[in-house]
Amino acid sequence: MPLKEGFRRKAMLDNLWEMLSPEGGILIFMEKGHPRGFEAVAEVRARLLDEFIVSPTSDARPEPIEPEMRREREPGMIVAPCTNHKACPMYLHPGLTPGRKDFCHFSQRFIRPPFLQRVLGATDRNHEDVDFSFVAVQRGTLPGTEKTTLPAQGREATDKAFGGHEHSPEAPNPLSLPRNILPPIKRRGHVTLDLCTPAGTLERWTVPKSFSKQAYRDARKARWGDLWALGAKTRIVRPVRLGKGGVAPNDGGVRAQQAARGGKMRVINLDADAGGIFRASEAGKASLSPRRTKGGKKGKKPPNLMKELGLQE
Protein backbone atom coordinates (compact mmCIF):
# COMPACT_ATOMS: atom_id res chain seq x y z
CA MET A 1 0.00 0.00 0.00
CA PRO A 2 2.80 2.55 0.59
CA LEU A 3 3.54 2.30 -3.15
CA LYS A 4 0.81 4.47 -4.65
CA GLU A 5 2.01 4.52 -8.27
CA GLY A 6 1.06 1.57 -10.45
CA PHE A 7 4.46 1.30 -12.13
CA ARG A 8 6.21 1.02 -8.75
CA ARG A 9 3.90 -1.79 -7.67
CA LYS A 10 4.55 -3.62 -10.93
CA ALA A 11 8.31 -3.24 -10.55
CA MET A 12 8.15 -4.57 -7.00
CA LEU A 13 6.19 -7.66 -8.06
CA ASP A 14 8.58 -8.28 -10.97
CA ASN A 15 11.60 -8.12 -8.65
CA LEU A 16 10.08 -10.43 -6.04
CA TRP A 17 9.07 -12.94 -8.71
CA GLU A 18 12.58 -13.07 -10.13
CA MET A 19 13.99 -13.84 -6.66
CA LEU A 20 11.51 -16.70 -6.19
CA SER A 21 12.68 -20.27 -6.79
CA PRO A 22 11.15 -21.70 -10.00
CA GLU A 23 10.98 -25.12 -8.31
CA GLY A 24 7.97 -24.65 -6.07
CA GLY A 25 8.90 -21.36 -4.40
CA ILE A 26 6.09 -19.72 -2.40
CA LEU A 27 5.42 -15.97 -2.46
CA ILE A 28 2.99 -14.45 0.08
CA PHE A 29 1.53 -10.97 -0.19
CA MET A 30 -0.15 -9.62 2.94
CA GLU A 31 -1.85 -6.33 3.76
CA LYS A 32 -4.13 -4.83 6.37
CA GLY A 33 -7.64 -6.26 6.46
CA HIS A 34 -9.59 -3.26 5.21
CA PRO A 35 -10.97 -2.40 1.74
CA ARG A 36 -7.84 -0.60 0.52
CA GLY A 37 -5.60 -3.43 1.75
CA PHE A 38 -7.78 -6.04 0.06
CA GLU A 39 -7.73 -4.09 -3.22
CA ALA A 40 -3.93 -3.96 -3.15
CA VAL A 41 -3.75 -7.75 -2.67
CA ALA A 42 -6.47 -8.40 -5.27
CA GLU A 43 -4.55 -6.30 -7.79
CA VAL A 44 -1.49 -8.52 -7.25
CA ARG A 45 -3.60 -11.68 -7.59
CA ALA A 46 -5.16 -10.49 -10.86
CA ARG A 47 -1.75 -9.69 -12.33
CA LEU A 48 -0.29 -13.03 -11.21
CA LEU A 49 -3.06 -14.92 -13.01
CA ASP A 50 -2.88 -12.74 -16.10
CA GLU A 51 0.88 -12.45 -16.57
CA PHE A 52 2.87 -14.87 -14.40
CA ILE A 53 1.29 -18.30 -13.88
CA VAL A 54 -0.94 -20.66 -15.82
CA SER A 55 -2.81 -23.55 -14.23
CA PRO A 56 -5.13 -26.27 -15.60
CA THR A 57 -8.17 -24.34 -14.34
CA SER A 58 -7.10 -20.83 -15.34
CA ASP A 59 -9.31 -18.75 -17.59
CA ALA A 60 -8.24 -18.35 -21.19
CA ARG A 61 -5.76 -15.50 -21.54
CA PRO A 62 -6.93 -12.55 -23.64
CA GLU A 63 -5.08 -11.91 -26.86
CA PRO A 64 -2.23 -9.43 -26.17
CA ILE A 65 -2.06 -6.23 -28.20
CA GLU A 66 1.75 -6.32 -28.28
CA PRO A 67 2.90 -9.95 -27.97
CA GLU A 68 6.58 -9.04 -27.74
CA MET A 69 5.90 -6.97 -24.63
CA ARG A 70 4.20 -9.78 -22.68
CA ARG A 71 6.03 -12.34 -20.56
CA GLU A 72 5.59 -16.06 -20.98
CA ARG A 73 3.41 -17.55 -18.29
CA GLU A 74 4.83 -20.55 -16.45
CA PRO A 75 3.27 -23.34 -14.38
CA GLY A 76 2.10 -22.29 -10.94
CA MET A 77 -0.89 -22.20 -8.65
CA ILE A 78 -2.58 -20.14 -5.94
CA VAL A 79 -2.15 -21.97 -2.65
CA ALA A 80 -4.39 -19.86 -0.37
CA PRO A 81 -6.87 -18.50 0.44
CA CYS A 82 -8.52 -18.98 -2.96
CA THR A 83 -9.59 -22.45 -4.09
CA ASN A 84 -10.10 -21.28 -7.67
CA HIS A 85 -8.06 -19.63 -10.41
CA LYS A 86 -10.87 -17.47 -11.75
CA ALA A 87 -11.36 -13.72 -11.40
CA CYS A 88 -12.01 -12.73 -7.79
CA PRO A 89 -15.79 -12.25 -7.33
CA MET A 90 -15.10 -9.39 -4.88
CA TYR A 91 -12.77 -7.56 -7.30
CA LEU A 92 -14.85 -7.17 -10.44
CA HIS A 93 -13.75 -3.57 -11.06
CA PRO A 94 -10.00 -2.79 -10.88
CA GLY A 95 -8.95 0.10 -8.70
CA LEU A 96 -10.52 1.72 -5.66
CA THR A 97 -14.19 1.19 -4.87
CA PRO A 98 -15.81 3.72 -2.49
CA GLY A 99 -18.35 2.26 -0.11
CA ARG A 100 -17.10 -1.33 -0.45
CA LYS A 101 -18.81 -3.64 2.06
CA ASP A 102 -17.51 -7.07 0.99
CA PHE A 103 -13.80 -7.75 0.84
CA CYS A 104 -11.77 -10.90 1.45
CA HIS A 105 -10.00 -10.75 4.80
CA PHE A 106 -9.41 -12.86 7.87
CA SER A 107 -8.69 -12.37 11.56
CA GLN A 108 -5.86 -13.67 13.75
CA ARG A 109 -5.58 -13.40 17.52
CA PHE A 110 -2.12 -13.04 19.07
CA ILE A 111 -0.85 -12.78 22.63
CA ARG A 112 0.85 -9.50 23.43
CA PRO A 113 4.39 -9.81 24.84
CA PRO A 114 4.87 -8.40 28.37
CA PHE A 115 6.75 -5.29 27.22
CA LEU A 116 3.86 -4.35 24.89
CA GLN A 117 1.42 -4.82 27.75
CA ARG A 118 3.38 -2.32 29.80
CA VAL A 119 3.61 0.17 26.92
CA LEU A 120 -0.15 -0.01 26.29
CA GLY A 121 -0.95 0.04 29.98
CA ALA A 122 -3.36 -2.86 29.43
CA THR A 123 -4.59 -4.60 32.56
CA ASP A 124 -7.77 -6.38 31.49
CA ARG A 125 -6.57 -8.49 28.54
CA ASN A 126 -3.30 -9.60 26.98
CA HIS A 127 -4.46 -10.43 23.46
CA GLU A 128 -5.44 -8.55 20.31
CA ASP A 129 -7.19 -9.43 17.04
CA VAL A 130 -5.65 -8.34 13.75
CA ASP A 131 -7.49 -8.38 10.40
CA PHE A 132 -5.47 -9.06 7.26
CA SER A 133 -5.83 -9.86 3.54
CA PHE A 134 -3.35 -12.13 1.80
CA VAL A 135 -2.63 -14.33 -1.20
CA ALA A 136 -0.03 -17.12 -1.43
CA VAL A 137 1.17 -18.33 -4.84
CA GLN A 138 3.54 -21.12 -5.90
CA ARG A 139 5.94 -20.66 -8.80
CA GLY A 140 6.66 -23.65 -10.99
CA THR A 141 6.39 -27.26 -9.85
CA LEU A 142 7.81 -29.06 -6.85
CA PRO A 143 11.12 -30.94 -7.35
CA GLY A 144 10.54 -34.38 -8.87
CA THR A 145 7.18 -33.49 -10.47
CA GLU A 146 6.61 -32.78 -14.14
CA LYS A 147 3.44 -30.75 -13.85
CA THR A 148 1.46 -28.75 -11.34
CA THR A 149 -0.50 -31.09 -9.08
CA LEU A 150 -3.75 -29.14 -8.95
CA PRO A 151 -7.00 -30.96 -8.07
CA ALA A 152 -10.29 -30.53 -9.85
CA GLN A 153 -11.84 -27.11 -9.48
CA GLY A 154 -14.79 -25.34 -11.02
CA ARG A 155 -18.52 -26.02 -11.01
CA GLU A 156 -18.16 -29.79 -10.74
CA ALA A 157 -16.00 -29.56 -7.61
CA THR A 158 -18.47 -27.07 -6.09
CA ASP A 159 -21.41 -29.42 -6.72
CA LYS A 160 -19.54 -32.31 -5.09
CA ALA A 161 -18.73 -30.16 -2.06
CA PHE A 162 -22.39 -29.16 -1.80
CA GLY A 163 -23.37 -32.82 -1.78
CA GLY A 164 -20.91 -33.38 1.06
CA HIS A 165 -17.95 -35.70 1.64
CA GLU A 166 -19.16 -37.04 4.98
CA HIS A 167 -19.47 -40.61 3.67
CA SER A 168 -16.71 -40.46 1.04
CA PRO A 169 -14.22 -43.35 1.19
CA GLU A 170 -11.29 -40.91 1.09
CA ALA A 171 -10.71 -37.36 2.23
CA PRO A 172 -11.23 -34.63 -0.41
CA ASN A 173 -8.39 -32.42 -1.57
CA PRO A 174 -8.46 -29.10 0.37
CA LEU A 175 -8.01 -27.12 -2.86
CA SER A 176 -11.36 -28.48 -4.10
CA LEU A 177 -13.40 -27.18 -1.17
CA PRO A 178 -15.17 -23.84 -0.55
CA ARG A 179 -13.86 -21.50 2.16
CA ASN A 180 -15.72 -19.45 4.77
CA ILE A 181 -15.22 -15.78 3.97
CA LEU A 182 -17.19 -14.57 7.02
CA PRO A 183 -18.01 -15.92 10.47
CA PRO A 184 -20.87 -18.47 10.31
CA ILE A 185 -24.33 -17.16 11.20
CA LYS A 186 -25.73 -19.40 13.95
CA ARG A 187 -29.47 -19.58 14.44
CA ARG A 188 -31.71 -21.96 16.32
CA GLY A 189 -31.90 -25.13 14.26
CA HIS A 190 -29.63 -24.08 11.37
CA VAL A 191 -26.31 -22.48 10.48
CA THR A 192 -25.65 -20.23 7.46
CA LEU A 193 -22.22 -20.25 5.80
CA ASP A 194 -20.95 -17.58 3.38
CA LEU A 195 -18.53 -19.40 1.09
CA CYS A 196 -16.16 -18.64 -1.79
CA THR A 197 -16.46 -21.72 -4.01
CA PRO A 198 -14.03 -23.50 -6.36
CA ALA A 199 -16.20 -22.16 -9.21
CA GLY A 200 -15.14 -18.60 -8.37
CA THR A 201 -18.55 -17.56 -7.01
CA LEU A 202 -19.89 -16.44 -3.65
CA GLU A 203 -22.71 -18.59 -2.27
CA ARG A 204 -24.69 -18.84 0.96
CA TRP A 205 -25.19 -22.41 2.16
CA THR A 206 -27.64 -23.38 4.91
CA VAL A 207 -26.99 -26.42 7.12
CA PRO A 208 -30.11 -27.27 9.17
CA LYS A 209 -30.19 -29.74 12.01
CA SER A 210 -32.26 -32.12 9.90
CA PHE A 211 -29.60 -32.29 7.18
CA SER A 212 -26.97 -34.21 9.15
CA LYS A 213 -26.16 -34.43 12.82
CA GLN A 214 -22.41 -34.35 12.13
CA ALA A 215 -22.62 -31.54 9.57
CA TYR A 216 -24.80 -29.41 11.87
CA ARG A 217 -22.44 -29.89 14.81
CA ASP A 218 -19.35 -29.06 12.75
CA ALA A 219 -21.07 -26.05 11.15
CA ARG A 220 -21.67 -24.60 14.62
CA LYS A 221 -17.99 -25.17 15.42
CA ALA A 222 -16.76 -23.80 12.08
CA ARG A 223 -14.75 -20.61 12.11
CA TRP A 224 -14.05 -17.75 9.77
CA GLY A 225 -11.53 -18.91 7.14
CA ASP A 226 -12.20 -22.66 7.50
CA LEU A 227 -12.77 -24.93 4.51
CA TRP A 228 -16.13 -26.72 4.38
CA ALA A 229 -16.50 -30.34 3.22
CA LEU A 230 -19.77 -31.62 4.72
CA GLY A 231 -22.21 -30.08 2.26
CA ALA A 232 -25.50 -28.26 2.87
CA LYS A 233 -29.23 -28.56 2.26
CA THR A 234 -29.85 -25.32 0.38
CA ARG A 235 -27.67 -22.85 -1.48
CA ILE A 236 -28.22 -19.44 -3.05
CA VAL A 237 -25.97 -16.96 -4.85
CA ARG A 238 -24.75 -14.31 -2.45
CA PRO A 239 -24.84 -10.78 -3.94
CA VAL A 240 -21.58 -8.89 -3.57
CA ARG A 241 -21.78 -5.41 -2.05
CA LEU A 242 -19.13 -3.61 -4.07
CA GLY A 243 -20.05 0.01 -3.40
CA LYS A 244 -20.09 2.62 -6.17
CA GLY A 245 -17.89 1.08 -8.86
CA GLY A 246 -14.18 1.19 -9.63
CA VAL A 247 -11.97 4.26 -9.29
CA ALA A 248 -8.47 4.24 -10.72
CA PRO A 249 -5.94 4.98 -7.95
CA ASN A 250 -4.36 8.42 -8.07
CA ASP A 251 -6.14 9.43 -11.26
CA GLY A 252 -6.69 12.93 -9.89
CA GLY A 253 -10.27 12.91 -11.11
CA VAL A 254 -13.49 13.83 -9.39
CA ARG A 255 -14.26 10.25 -8.36
CA ALA A 256 -10.80 9.81 -6.83
CA GLN A 257 -11.35 13.00 -4.81
CA GLN A 258 -14.73 11.66 -3.80
CA ALA A 259 -13.13 8.42 -2.59
CA ALA A 260 -10.53 10.36 -0.61
CA ARG A 261 -13.35 12.19 1.21
CA GLY A 262 -15.04 8.93 2.16
CA GLY A 263 -17.49 8.82 -0.74
CA LYS A 264 -19.04 12.29 -0.29
CA MET A 265 -19.18 14.69 -3.25
CA ARG A 266 -20.07 18.39 -3.15
CA VAL A 267 -22.36 19.53 -5.96
CA ILE A 268 -22.11 23.28 -6.68
CA ASN A 269 -24.81 25.10 -8.69
CA LEU A 270 -23.71 28.28 -10.47
CA ASP A 271 -26.21 30.97 -11.57
CA ALA A 272 -25.12 33.24 -14.41
CA ASP A 273 -26.48 35.90 -16.75
CA ALA A 274 -25.03 38.13 -19.46
CA GLY A 275 -22.82 39.81 -16.89
CA GLY A 276 -21.29 36.52 -15.73
CA ILE A 277 -21.66 34.31 -12.67
CA PHE A 278 -23.46 36.13 -9.87
CA ARG A 279 -24.32 33.33 -7.38
CA ALA A 280 -22.98 29.96 -6.25
CA SER A 281 -24.97 27.55 -4.11
CA GLU A 282 -24.37 24.04 -2.84
CA ALA A 283 -27.01 21.44 -3.70
CA GLY A 284 -29.33 20.74 -0.79
CA LYS A 285 -28.34 23.94 1.04
CA ALA A 286 -29.36 27.57 0.96
CA SER A 287 -27.68 30.10 -1.29
CA LEU A 288 -24.07 30.80 -0.42
CA SER A 289 -24.11 34.41 -1.64
CA PRO A 290 -24.87 37.28 0.78
CA ARG A 291 -28.58 38.22 0.71
CA ARG A 292 -30.86 40.32 2.88
CA THR A 293 -33.54 38.45 4.74
CA LYS A 294 -37.23 39.23 4.53
CA GLY A 295 -37.99 42.63 6.04
CA GLY A 296 -34.68 44.22 5.03
CA LYS A 297 -32.63 42.87 7.92
CA LYS A 298 -29.28 41.34 7.24
CA GLY A 299 -29.02 37.64 7.85
CA LYS A 300 -25.97 35.68 8.85
CA LYS A 301 -23.36 35.99 6.16
CA PRO A 302 -22.52 32.56 4.71
CA PRO A 303 -19.06 31.63 3.44
CA ASN A 304 -18.21 33.23 0.10
CA LEU A 305 -18.10 30.17 -2.10
CA MET A 306 -17.52 32.21 -5.25
CA LYS A 307 -14.26 33.50 -3.84
CA GLU A 308 -13.43 30.00 -2.67
CA LEU A 309 -13.92 28.68 -6.21
CA GLY A 310 -11.77 31.47 -7.68
CA LEU A 311 -14.71 33.15 -9.44
CA GLN A 312 -14.47 36.41 -7.52
CA GLU A 313 -11.53 38.45 -6.28
Rank of each mutant, 00 (worst) to 15 (best):
G275D: 11
D131T: 00
A280K: 01
E5F: 11
R223S: 15
C196H: 09
T83C: 03
V41F: 00
L96V: 05
E308K: 12
K186A: 03
P94S: 08
G200Y: 14
E39S: 02
A280M: 00
Q153W: 07
K294H: 14
P113Q: 06
P184T: 06
Y216G: 12
F115W: 08
L227R: 11
V247E: 01
V191E: 01
D194G: 01
P114S: 09
A272H: 08
Q214I: 15
G144A: 06
M90A: 11
M306A: 08
P64G: 09
R100K: 15
M77N: 00
A286P: 00
K298T: 12
G225V: 03
S210G: 15
S287M: 01
R187Y: 02
K233N: 14
L96H: 01
A272I: 01
C82K: 00
A171T: 04
R61M: 07
L49C: 14
G164C: 13
G262F: 15
P64D: 08
P172C: 01
G189Q: 05
I277Y: 02
E66C: 13
R235C: 15
F132K: 00
R139L: 08
M265I: 14
T148F: 01
E5T: 13
V135C: 03
Q138H: 04
D271N: 09
F29I: 05
A122N: 10
R235S: 14
H93M: 08
D124M: 05
D159G: 01
A11C: 14
P113G: 06
R118M: 05
G246P: 07
Q258S: 14
M1N: 02
F103E: 02
P151T: 07
I26C: 06
A42L: 09
F278N: 03
R109L: 00
T145M: 07
R204K: 15
S289H: 11
P239A: 11
V247C: 07
E18F: 13
C196D: 09
R292Y: 11
N180M: 13
K4E: 11
N250A: 10
P98Q: 07
A136T: 02
R266G: 13
E203T: 10
M30L: 07
R9A: 15
M77Q: 07
R279A: 10
D131R: 02
V79I: 13
A136H: 01
P169N: 05
G231F: 10
H93F: 12
V130M: 05
A161L: 02
L49G: 10
I78T: 00
P113W: 05
A171F: 06
D131A: 01
T145I: 02
F278E: 04
R279Y: 00
Y91A: 05
T57I: 03
A286R: 06
P114R: 09
E282I: 09
G253H: 04
D102N: 11
V137A: 08
R112W: 04
A199M: 08
G25T: 12
P290C: 03
R291W: 01
D218Y: 13
E313Y: 01
A274C: 02
T123M: 04
P208L: 10
W224A: 07
L142Y: 10
K10E: 13
M90R: 10
